[in-house]
Structures are given as C-alpha cells and as structure tokens.
Write a protein that binds this DNA or RNA. Structure first.
Lengths: 136, 136
DNA sequence: TAATTCTTGAGAGTAGCTATCAGTCAAGTA
DNA sequence: TACTTGACTGATAGCTACTCTCAAGAATTA
C-alpha cells in the first residue's frame, strides 16, 4: 500500500495532480484507512499508469473518464476499449513523427549557433535566417 | 505574402492561436496592408516555425518571448540563445523517450485486447490486470 | 444594392492543472 | 501533559494557453 506522496514519487506525477485526477473519478475504488487517507494498492497503480499514459498523449480527462468507466462496466465494452487504445496508439505514433521533425529543427539550430560561435560570426539580427525551407 | 488563414493552413496552427501568439509578441514585425490585415512573409513563417517548435516541446510562452526578444537584440545574445536551444533539444529527447515508453504500454494493451477478442475471453472486469509491472 | 466572405480586436469561456489554506490526525519532544 | 511537527484532507482561488463568440469594417460577388 502506498500513500499519495509515495505514488507521486513513484509515478512522477504531483500530489496535486493525483488528487485532481482522483476527484475526477479517474481512480475508481481507491481504499482509505481509518483516518480517511488514500491507500493505493498495486492494482491502483495500474490505473495511475494508464491515466498517465493517456494524458501524456493528450487525451482529455473526460475521454479518460469514459475509458475508465468502460473498464468498470466489464467485458461488453472490450471492443470499444480496443478502439480507444488503437486510436490512441496512432495518435502517439503521429506525435512521435512530429517530435522527430521538431528535433531536426533543434539539431539544425544548435549546429547553426555552434558554427556562429566558433567562427565569431553574426547572424545579422535575423534569427530566422537559419531556416531554409519556410513551411513546416 | 500570406494571410493569417493561409499561414494557419500551411503551418497547421489555428488562426486563433496565431492571433494569440501574435498578441503575445511572438511574431515581431509582421506587416499589415492598407486594411490592417496581417501579411506574413516567408521570413515571418520562420518565426511561426520556431515558435511552434518550442511550444510543441512544452516551452511556455513567456520563455518563447524571451527567446524571440534575445533574437531581436542581436549577436550579443547568441550564447544565451545557444543555451536555450541546447536545453530544449535535451527536453525533446527526454520527451521522445517518454513517448516511446508510453507507446510500449499502448502496444501491449492493444495486443492484450486483440487476444481477448480473438479468444472470446473475459478480462474479469479488471482492465488494469493487463499491466505486469506496476510502476512506470 | 444586397448578401457573402474575410479579417480584425475585444472579451468571455474552458481545460487542466497548480498553489494556498484551514482543519484533522498521529507521532515525537519538553 | 502540552506543544510542535509533519502528512494528509477537501475547498477554493489563481494561472496558462488556448478556444470561441461577437460586432465592426472592408472587399467580393450576385
């Protein structure tokens, strides 16, 4: 059993955010002790993990709640849950591509500045002139 | 020259967001025509591109403004700009790693559901039991 | 001339945190 | 025994970065 503080550390999510997610119904059935303090089980960490995963890909909290609720309903919702996960995976792959592209720009800019510094050159007060093609 | 609508389409950023960024001072020196309508040049698209890049990695608008302002000051700020880009690049790499990890979970979940459906099995109303290791 | 289309800025609304605060409880210390 | 410290609680306020709605004004088309 873990306190909210331990979960926060373990999962790298702030206590505030965990409470916010809990209040939003994203962690069903987390037990409390005699002093009303949340006790996260290993099982509950599973919820935290999937919520964190969906959030990190940009799924809004309402849709996450929907997924959680589908889970609670049971087997009949497996096809819909499957669909959600598939769509989320595709979204994640797209984000990966986008991130790669942005990384290329950062790589380029980094070497551009490096060059500038090494050769003690000016960029003519025009920081965008290191970008060859205009559109992303 | 491009209207804001064209830029929105070209760069895949909403007009609203472009106006918001413009108002925040993230696009210095965008010209207007006789009717006060913004005319983005190729050069201006460079600003949009770098702002979009920094935003996509989670840089807050205040820090982006700082970067833009440094650019406008000129050569004396090249070392600081270099530092910002380097730090941003590292942040992007970390995000890449994080995304990969989340993608693994999604991959696992997808095949889990697939299996479930193929074999007409139950997940015992416990959607978190497809997660082997508890912590992320 | 009238209707449509586009852009503009102002301002309201929203999501998802993030921070503050007072209150409760348990354990440790004087 | 009284006091302090520290962890957790929910309520609530505040913040960022959009996102949407709107009315006004100019240009285009019927």
């Amino acid at each position: 059993m873990y306190t909210i503080k331990e979960v926060a550390k373990l999962m790298d999510v702030s206590e505030h955010t965990l409470r916010f997610w809990a209040k939003s119904g994203l962690f069903p059935g987390v037990k409390r002790d005699a002093n009303n303090i949340r006790q996260f089980s290993e099982h509950d960490l599973g919820w935290v993990k999937i919520v964190k995963c969906l959030r990190s890909v940009g799924t809004d909290n309402k849709s996450i709640k929907r997924y959680i609720d589908l889970c609670l309903i049971g087997d009949s919702t497996i096809p819909e849950r499957f669909g959600i996960i598939k769509a989320t995976r595709i979204k994640a792959l797209q984000q990966m591509e986008e991130l790669k592209k942005q990384l290329e720009l950062l790589d380029y800019k980094e070497s551009y500045y490096e060059e500038l510094i090494k050769n003690n050159k000016s960029d003519k007060y025009n920081p965008a002139n290191d970008i060859k093609e205009a559109v992303s």
